[in-house]
Amino acid sequence: MAALLADVQRSFTQRFGVDLTTVREKVAAELLATGIPGIRIPRGTLTEISGPPSSGRTSILNATLARATHRPEFCALIDAGGNFDPRSAAAAGVQLRHLLWVRCGGSAENALKAADLIIQGGGFGVVALDLAGVPSRDARRISLASWFRLRHTVEKTSTALILVEEERNAASCSTLQIEGKATDFQITGGLLRGLTVDATLGPRTRARATFALKPLYSE
């Protein structure tokens, strides 16, 4: 059997110029819990969370940051539009002392540079790039090569790179694409009671996750 296997390998190498002994099986990425049923973020990859306002993008991100900072891991949030609300995040469970917050004043270009520097520096469990606060045309201008570079940088690390945006920009560079959509809201008795979100997880599977987000009035 071993002789047969060696023979196959040799003939494959002669024919295609690829040494089969150096080809390794792709290891499945470790998944990061978000606390939202059905949604787990893979490490070492780029994950896109997209959708219009009130589609649960920020809540999914904050839930992920909360779990990661509780572990405790250090996380970085590159906030292109400066929309992050620390009080709301703290209420969602994010340990703010484990969070590096970079405010880019509406510049998608600076946000991309900052994300690149932080990923190159290493050591962060989650790096989130929030482009939802900048105009879509600015986010669209980011070249595919930039996304590929970011994906390539995180590939051999245990960092989960999360991109939050209005519409998907990273195309095939993202391993997981979460697209949220608000399906219902609950306002009763003069109080905002919650928001129901339906998220589609792609591109390999078309799994769906439906969850209800509730505001924490204790904030």
């Binding site: 606390g35 939202i36 809540s59």
Partner: peptide
Amino acid sequence: AYKTDSAPCPCEVLTLRR
């Protein structure tokens, strides 16, 4: 390294973008 809050993480919280 800081000591983290020992309370469990609240789940599915609706958050605000300012």
